[in-house]
């Protein structure tokens, strides 16, 4: 039986489907391959190569860059960076969780307003937001002047240029990234879950601890990654608020590329950050599967 419309043949239809798939996917994926995956390959390759005399690299294989990274001097910097980033992440969770939980208790239109207010600073200039703390905490700054005028202190306090100032700056920069994923995990929990726990005899506190908290855990982990990863590799906050005394791994990487011109060693340090990111995502995916269940498991 012939159709009234001219048949194009199955091959033509298949070809067209393939063509449209290519039109949509190829440009973006090519761009990502050329400017992210290949550069990542460069970093990995550099870690095994030798440093050039005037910066750059020489194609001589070596594993020395890795052994150098294990030097107590650099290992110390790495550990200090991880400690500062972990402290920031834990504080962000301790403050961010109650905030996210409070937002879920508001009426929907107020929820949206508060989320906008919390996320808005995040989208503004990072340098300026960090600099704003210098204006506020400087020895001649607002806070010190205010405290002196109120007679609380007689001498200005040195609030900047120490590790706690770095933690403060990182917390300020990234706490919205902790609040948002926790919020979205919390609002996705069926309210019947908590009611079921109470109906089965749990006190509200038990229901929170045994049901709400575990179900929000995947969101907490996403938030932790979003705070930890940019914190551990940050070099602006340590430089502006840490006063250069507390060097973090981000500063070290920057210096290897722009000052010391030891690209291979800088690459090893950068790769360690990428590996940390991948490990965290792996953990997050596992917890996600454990908590929310997986039909295939």
């Amino acid at each position: 039986m012939a159709l009234a419309v001219k048949s194009e043949g199955r091959d033509a239809i298949k070809r067209r489907a393939l063509l449209s798939r290519a039109v949509f996917l190829v440009p973006g994926l090519t761009y990502i391959t050329a400017f992210m995956l290949i550069p990542l390959g460069f970093i990995i390759a550099y870690t095994f190569l030798s440093r050039g005399t005037y910066g750059g690299i020489e194609f001589i294989f070596t594993a020395e860059n890795y052994t150098r990274a294990l030097d107590s001097l650099y290992l110390g910097v790495l550990i200090k960076s991880i400690l500062i980033a972990s402290t920031t992440t834990i504080l962000a969770f301790l403050i961010g969780f109650p905030v996210a939980y409070a937002i879920t208790k508001l009426p929907t239109n107020r929820q949206n307003l508060l989320l906008v207010l919390i996320v808005l600073p995040f989208w503004t200039n990072f340098l300026i937001r960090t600099y704003a703390w210098i204006v506020l905490l400087n020895t001649q700054g607002f806070l010190n002047k205010g405290l002196i005028n109120m007679g609380v202190i007689s001498q200005p306090l040195e609030l900047l240029y120490k590790p706690s100032a770095i933690v403060l700056g990182l917390l300020y920069a990234y706490i919205p990234l902790m609040i948002l994923p926790i919020y979205s995990a919390l609002v996705r929990i069926d309210p019947a879950m908590k009611e079921a726990a109470i109906n089965l005899g749990a006190t509200p506190a038990q229901a929170f601890r045994q049901v709400t908290l575990p179900l929000a855990l995947p969101g907490v982990l996403v938030g932790a990654i979003f705070v930890f990863v940019p914190s551990v590799g940050n070099f602006i906050v340590p430089e502006l608020l840490g006063g250069g005394k507390t060097i973090m791994v981000g500063n070290l990487i920057r210096d290897q590329f722009l000052k010391a011109r030891d690209w291979p060693f800088g690459s090893v340090l950068a790769l360690s950050m990428v590996i940390m990111l991948l490990m965290l995502f792996f953990i997050q995916a596992r917890v996600n599967r454990r908590v929310l269940g997986d039909a295939r498991a």
């Binding site: 019947a192 009611e195 109906n199 005899g201 575990p214 929310l292 269940g293």
Partner: peptide
């Protein structure tokens, strides 16, 4: 109080704890 009532509810969505 709700958690002390000798009354149990089977929820429409079942509300089984996924974890």
């Amino acid at each position: 109080p709700a958690n002390k009532r000798p009354v149990n509810l089977m929820f429409q969505s079942y509300a089984l704890f996924p974890h």
